[in-house]
Design a protein around this nucleic acid. Structure first.
Length: 159
DNA sequence: GCCAACGTTGGC
DNA sequence: GCCAACGTTGGC
């Protein structure tokens, strides 16, 4: 029995890739700029330090899960929403009453074999994943069995 | 680059 | 509170 939860975070590699995360100081970055309420709720209420994250590259020729990251800081206010100069500025969000939240994640590993979206679609056990039904949710929960199956497909030994 | 799907906004 | 218009996401 594990004491952490599993998630999948999407990113367009042209704006932020797994390699970008790996190359950050301490291989750590703020997962900021999420402006969707359902994703916000996960970030604010459920995503905790120690949780494990599938890093997914979206909006490319072959979308795929490409790596693993770990949450090193649970949900806290996304201050990019407070900064008028920031592309993610949102005047409705105030420091006293933040609308948006973020977490910090650290690079863990690249997958030996990326697991492509088309591959995931062929696995009946994964048909319930938000990735396959709720295609626009950029932060989403992953069940432990789904996590294990995807890592198996990626050629990673059981964790 | 196209465009369908979908979340959000705002007029009424 | 409805729903049309709009903007964005993301697969293809």
């Amino acid at each position: 029995m594990s004491n952490h939860n599993y998630w999948l975070f999407k990113s367009e590699p042209s704006s932020f890739s797994l390699d970008d995360l790996k190359n950050r100081p301490d291989a750590t970055e703020h997962w900021d700029g999420v402006r969707n309420y359902q994703a916000r709720n996960f970030l604010r209420d459920q995503i905790k330090e120690g949780d494990q994250v599938l890093f997914y590259h979206s909006n490319i020729a072959e979308p795929a899960v490409v790596g693993i990251a770990e949450v090193v800081k649970g949900g806290y206010p996304d201050w990019t929403a407070f900064d008028p100069g920031n592309p993610h500025f949102d005047p409705r969000s105030a420091p006293e009453k933040p609308t948006w939240y973020m977490v910090d994640v650290r690079f863990v590993r690249e997958l030996p074999r990326p697991v492509t979206l088309s591959q995931l679609k062929t696995i009946p056990e994964l048909a319930g994943m938000a990735l396959l039904n709720r295609s626009r949710l950029s932060v989403q929960p992953v069940r432990e069995e789904e996590w294990a199956e995807i890592l198996r497909l990626a050629g990673v030994d059981g964790t």
